[in-house]
Design a protein around this nucleic acid. Structure first.
Lengths: 144, 144
DNA sequence: TTTATTTAGGACATTTTTGTCCTATTTATA
DNA sequence: TATAAATAGGACAAAAATGTCCTAAATAAA
């Protein structure tokens, strides 16, 4: 569904959000550890998220990544996916046709629209805050 | 959503089904041309579909690919996707966790299940016959 | 029987994705 | 001020996906 980069990105952002709600900044090392992701690769992804203003990075000793508390409930999964994978989740034909639309559709065009709208809707309505719920109490997990 | 190989595979199988309903066997060359797919790569994919009994291949002059008419309405998209991409569309966590289930779910587990069930249902209920409808009359397309 | 046509399959090539490593820069703190 | 800790970013490496090419085998038809 998503690229590996995007999966790591969502997990990383979610963990940063969780820690930010506790008023804590998190190092790359901890993020990678707590999301079971490759450190250096995660670093690249966090650079992208930082450039896209989804997370803030602070260099130097006691630096790390954080998200302003007031932003945790406004940032949607769709923003993270867009920052990393672009809009190919939305546009792009299910059968790979370069052009596929209502006027000249592929055989599964209408059916795919339904599924993609579901995905789109989910991504656009799920906030980082919502992602963090359950993590603290062990109802949901970011690794294993 | 699917791999390129899978997209080509669905397009190829759909075209073969269309031709088979007309009582015609189709050469690799024609399939690639009519689905705008790379010839040699499509050949590999058709080998897989042939091994999985989704299409039948006939070697030699006037050979090619075909699907028994009686099978065109029983073969589902899910079988083609499974033959090429395996079951990763079904299993596999939205956030890439190796293990993710109701007992130890990722934060989007439940939401993903809904979307994936939609996709799964679509693949399991759409037959090749249904895929061919509209092609002859120019309502749907397999290329461009 | 020879030839032309067509798929099968192995080997190879290219591109994209995923992942690592090293150096520079920034910053807190001793 | 020196040092240690941390991100930024470029270069490189490995793996996977995508795609090509060539030869062998099968088959219809001349």
């Amino acid at each position: 569904m998503f690229s590996k980069a995007c999966e790591y990105g969502i997990r990383a952002a979610t963990y940063i959000a969780l820690r930010s709600l506790e008023g804590k900044r998190t190092s790359l090392k901890d993020i990678a550890k707590e999301t079971d992701s490759p450190v250096a690769f995660t670093a690249k992804i966090l650079q992208q998220l930082s450039k896209n203003k989804i997370v803030e990075s602070v260099k130097g000793a006691s630096g790390g990544f954080e998200i302003q508390k007031r932003n945790v409930h406004t940032i949607k999964l769709s923003q993270i996916v867009y920052a990393i994978d672009g809009d190919k989740v939305y546009h792009g034909c299910g059968l790979g046709l370069r052009e596929c639309n209502g006027a000249k559709p592929c055989p599964v065009h209408d059916k795919f629209i339904g599924i993609r709208d579901g995905l789109k809707n989910m991504l656009e309505t799920t906030t980082l805050l919502e992602m963090t719920r359950g993590l603290e109490v062990g109802l949901t997990y970011l690794k294993r």
